[in-house]
Deep mutational scan, measured.
Amino acid sequence: MDSLVVLVLCLSCLLLLSLWRQSSGRGKLPPGPTPLPVIGNILQIGIKDISKSLTNLSKVYGPVFTLYFGLKPIVVLHGYEAVKEALIDLGEEFSGRGIFPLAERANRGFGIVFSNGKKWKEIRRFSLMTLRNFGMGKRSIEDRVQEEARCLVEELRKTKASPCDPTFILGCAPCNVICSIIFHKRFDYKDQQFLNLMEKLNENIKILSSPWIQICNNFSPIIDYFPGTHNKLLKNVAFMKSYILEKVKEHQESMDMNNPQDFIDCFLMKMEKEKHNQPSEFTIESLENTAVDLFGAGTETTSTTLRYALLLLLKHPEVTAKVQEEIERVIGRNRSPCMQDRSHMPYTDAVVHEVQRYIDLLPTSLPHAVTCDIKFRNYLIPKGTTILISLTSVLHDNKEFPNPEMFDPHHFLDEGGNFKKSKYFMPFSAGKRICVGEALAGMELFLFLTSILQNFNLKSLVDPKNLDTTPVVNGFASVPPFYQLCFIPV
């Protein structure tokens, strides 16, 4: 009986604490739906499609509103004006990374994606500088992407125009580009180590996009005490870190300090320079996690976009025909596509942009946080508050993009057929937390897609009208449904 009384008292205290925290903070924060004790607004949000729920709530509470995930307040920004004001106009104040408990377990605050403060700034600055020195957006990395595009075309030829699921092959190409940047090595598509790495990356994007992960991140005790797919994700990350550590040891034994070959060499050189400046942010643990982040951000996002792009091109054969006509006119058949071609191919450029806009790969991006107490639109948001960005509300804005739910390359073309930029184009987020590999991803999408369409016609196994382009999961990332196609050599 005594234990029951204690339990009831504990629960009562928890409920009172929950109510007090919510009521004391709500006077400062933007308005929002009334949260339930302990669980907050979790029942009012469709976990399978958070973005749709945010759109519905914005119609009631406006472009800036507050939700509670458990006891934790989260300020939501919906629509271009609110997102721009926060991420661009007040970029420094909104540059923090929001709480992501599962990532905390995986990387302990290291790396480039989930770190904060001085650690994040130094690692991000170093990573950007190193990638630029190796030619991100310049010639040397373009050579690597072109080489991988040629290998991709050869792998597709091996399908002999038979029906195939493109998931694996389209994942190999961007993964190999990242391998060449980090390890100075590309792998054969049949290499077992490479296959294991690909498998872990593919599993992780599916797990991260599941409703279960949303629950884990908002009720963090689940991570330590409950079984579930989150444990598989943590094991996959541990596998990748151990693999990278092996490569780091190989580099330490063979590195030429006067001739760095890749990202690992550059990081080890930085560690050597910083060894007298303790404590340094440049450690082996930081290198492991930064490399894992580059793999995660640079492989599955690009391969998922490529997979979605081919599905949309199957669905819209008239678009595919126009792209192939432009390829034939500008590039021809006797040389590989290059980035200089893009400025002469406005329709193809528009298609690449429209694919990214339409699929809305990361509907709410990753959570941000404010780095200080900030007054925002007459609300006071306390330091450390998590900020949720609705990228969907920007990419699918119906004023900027008429009929935003329709796939239409003319969203990025003017009346004369010239490519038209849009400030609403934010597939990689915006501001200080914009994806480090934005330029690389854009290069890969253009070169891989043009190389495929230069060499193959795409054949659907069903009537294009019957192809479903609805994402199968739409949590962290929008993942396309399973499909097969035939690559018919031109």
Rank of each mutant, 00 (worst) to 15 (best):
V5C: 14
L11E: 01
C13L: 13
L15Y: 11
R21P: 09
Q22L: 11
G27Y: 11
L29T: 03
P33Q: 00
T34E: 14
V38M: 10
I42P: 04
L43W: 09
S53E: 14
N56G: 13
G62A: 01
P63S: 13
L67Q: 00
G70M: 05
G70N: 06
L71P: 15
L71T: 14
L71F: 12
L71Q: 10
K72C: 04
K84L: 07
A86C: 14
D89C: 08
E92L: 06
F94R: 02
F100P: 11
L102Q: 08
A103Q: 13
R105G: 08
R108V: 10
R108G: 13
G109I: 09
S115C: 08
S115F: 07
N116K: 15
G117A: 10
E122Y: 06
E122T: 13
I123N: 06
F126V: 07
S127A: 13
L128S: 14
M129Q: 15
K138I: 08
K138L: 09
R139K: 10
S140C: 10
I141E: 03
I141P: 02
D143V: 10
R144T: 14
V153G: 01
V153L: 05
K160P: 03
A161S: 14
T167D: 05
G171Q: 13
P174W: 01
P174D: 03
C175G: 07
V177P: 00
Q193C: 10
L195I: 15
N196T: 13
L197P: 00
M198C: 14
W212R: 02
W212D: 02
I215Q: 02
N217A: 14
N218Q: 09
P221R: 08
P221M: 09
P221F: 09
I223P: 11
G228L: 07
H230G: 08
H230D: 03
N231W: 08
K235Q: 14
S242E: 14
E250R: 08
H251G: 05
S254P: 05
N259K: 09
N259T: 12
Q261A: 13
C266I: 06
E272S: 12
L287G: 02
T304Q: 12
L311I: 06
L311V: 05
K315C: 06
P317Y: 06
V323Q: 01
V323K: 01
E326L: 00
E326R: 00
I327N: 01
R335L: 03
S336E: 07
P337Y: 01
M339S: 10
Y347M: 03
Y347V: 03
P363K: 03
T364E: 02
T364W: 15
L366K: 06
P367H: 03
H368M: 09
V370E: 02
D373V: 01
Y379C: 07
T385K: 01
T385L: 04
L388P: 00
T392Y: 08
F401M: 05
N403H: 13
F412W: 05
D414V: 05
S422Q: 05
S422G: 05
M426V: 07
G431Q: 05
E438D: 09
M443N: 03
E444A: 04
L458Y: 01
T469E: 10
T470E: 07
V472D: 05
N474V: 07
N474E: 13
G475M: 07
A477P: 04
A477N: 14
F482C: 13
F482V: 14
Q484L: 04
L485T: 09
